[in-house]
């Protein structure tokens, strides 16, 4: 059975995939305002991911959810690097899995905030 990972895209991520050909693979939600890339994940790979991150789960849509932010960020970076949503992307992420797990372990304490101006609040 195939599972999925949804990579949500904001403006900065959309900019990052410009010219990679991935724009054509975008799917949308909420009247086109939410854009995402959907990666197919073979069951044996999703098992491997679930083994690495115990809080992750597969939801009713067969999407892998509650993945660490560090994993999702690394995944997106490799998607951009490889200009692909294929199996080689997750393979590349797994090359750095120890580093990602270290970052993920710290995620209950610290996640770097986005660099946006909040002075109007």
């Amino acid at each position: 059975m195939v599972h999925y990972i949804g990579l949500l895209l904001d403006d900065s991520r959309l900019e990052a995939i410009k010219g990679t050909g991935l724009e054509e693979k975008l799917t949308t939600l909420f009247g086109g305002q939410v854009k995402q890339l959907i990666m197919e994940v073979p069951e044996e790979v999703s098992k491997k991911i679930l083994a690495e991150f115990p809080n992750a789960r597969i939801d009713s849509r067969s999407f892998l959810e509650d993945l660490p932010v560090a994993f999702k960020r690394a995944l997106f970076q490799e998607v951009v690097n490889k200009k692909s949503l294929g199996a080689e992307v997750i393979e590349a992420v797994f090359q750095k899995i120890d580093e990602i797990k270290d970052l993920a372990a710290k995620e209950s304490e610290y996640i770097p905030p986005p660099d946006i101006d909040t002075s109007e609040i």
Binding site: Q33, V69, P112, P113, P114
Partner: peptide
């Protein structure tokens, strides 16, 4: 958590800025 700026149809920009 991923630091994705939510679109206005989900969460107002200024509400998200209050979180940040």
């Amino acid at each position: 958590a991923e630091g994705i700026f939510p679109p206005n149809i989900i969460m107002r920009n200024e509400v998200y800025k209050a979180i940040v």
